[in-house]
Simulated scan of single mutants.
Amino acid sequence: MVVLAERYRPTVSSGTRQLLQLLAAVNSRLSGDVSLPMLAVWARRSRFDLHRRFRRLVGETPKAYTTRVRLARAAAELVSNGRRVSAIASDQGFASHEVFTRAFTRHLDQSPLRYRARGLHVAGRLTAATHASAVSSTAPCISLYHLRITERKPAVPLQISVRAVPAFHALVIRRRIARDEIAAALAECLPTVFGYAQQHGLAITGPPFARYPEVGMGSLVIEGGITIAEPPSTALSDRIEAITIPAGRAVVTVHRGPYDSLPESYQEIEKWMRDQQLSAAGAPWETYLTDPGESPDPATWETEIVQPVRDTQRTSN
């Protein structure tokens, strides 16, 4: 393991920091009153101003955001434990069983009881528990990855190592975009893939990720997705693909800080690989370990970067 040079740590505008702190507060109190009037009181802003700022940062209105997160967590509970539907609805902050059922059916195109009866495509308590944990931590931030923080200052050094990476299955949406469109692409792709997996009972096994099969000077190909326990057995929608990433050796590091400074970490990885006589053996990917919706300080955000490699010394012999 090697310690590398300085990169950058963010200084966040007071307005953005306040909204991130508000999101963290909301996500810890979803069983209570998180209406717009209450959020405005917490933020010490007018309802109109908060609504406008919230939607600009998150991409959803406060009501749409809280309803979506509550329903996602409720859906995960339905297939991971045997609690009564009314109890789950109450714990997730819905006023009544009827209100919950109507909202759930609109969101997932089936009633809570039918959703529970179908269950996950991959059965088992461990799979269900993993799915529930992944949904609970991912739902609040599914549209916030690669949130841009423009003001920066020196950050903590980076550490890099080589390790064996296991194979995994995933659902992704693939798009060709300009380099400055990553955040917008993920804000569109990740919620779509996440919602599809929940709607169709596919067990989610970890945080969202972005993979880069092709990187050019002016554009790149990005695959935004989530890991799942097993490939789906039915045909997917036109936009969503199922992929399997093979096991192998890879250079791995954890980037700590805002998404804006991820390019500097990739540059450090490339330099380290040259020094270690390693060459890339496939597309890199980054997994978003920290939930921006629950951790308001960008300096604490962690993103794992994985670059599959082959050893050029062994290859040449």
Rank of each mutant, 00 (worst) to 15 (best):
F100Y: 04
L220H: 04
T315P: 00
G218Q: 14
E268K: 13
R106Q: 11
V34D: 06
I177Q: 09
R53G: 12
V309A: 06
I240G: 10
S265E: 09
V172H: 06
H97S: 10
T227M: 14
T253D: 02
R256D: 00
V172C: 11
V85S: 04
A132N: 11
E60F: 06
I226W: 01
L220N: 05
W285S: 07
S161P: 00
L50W: 01
D109H: 08
L220M: 15
L19T: 05
R83Y: 01
K271I: 10
R114H: 09
A299S: 15
G32H: 06
P213V: 10
H255W: 08
S137R: 14
E302A: 14
E214S: 15
E286Q: 13
V156Q: 11
A183P: 03
V165Q: 13
V306D: 02
A155G: 15
A123N: 11
A64G: 07
G225K: 05
L171C: 09
R55M: 06
V309I: 15
Q110I: 05
F100C: 06
Y288S: 04
P154M: 03
L171A: 04
R17Q: 14
E268A: 14
G216R: 07
R114C: 03
L289I: 13
R249Q: 14
G257A: 06
M273L: 08
A5D: 13
P231H: 04
T130L: 15
T244W: 07
R211M: 14
Y145H: 11
F194V: 11
T205N: 11
D260R: 10
I204D: 02
F194Q: 04
D180M: 02
E151Q: 13
E6I: 06
P246K: 03
R114L: 13
T101W: 01
T66C: 06
V99M: 09
R256H: 11
F194T: 08
A95W: 03
E268W: 00
V165M: 14
R44G: 10
R7W: 00
V251I: 09
Q159L: 10
S143I: 00
L71S: 03
E151Y: 01
S161H: 12
S316L: 13
Q313H: 08
P157N: 08
P207W: 02
E304M: 15
D91L: 05
T290Y: 04
V26N: 01
Q276G: 00
Q276R: 11
L262D: 05
M38T: 12
P140H: 03
N317D: 08
S316F: 02
Y196R: 13
A170L: 10
G59Y: 06
L236W: 05
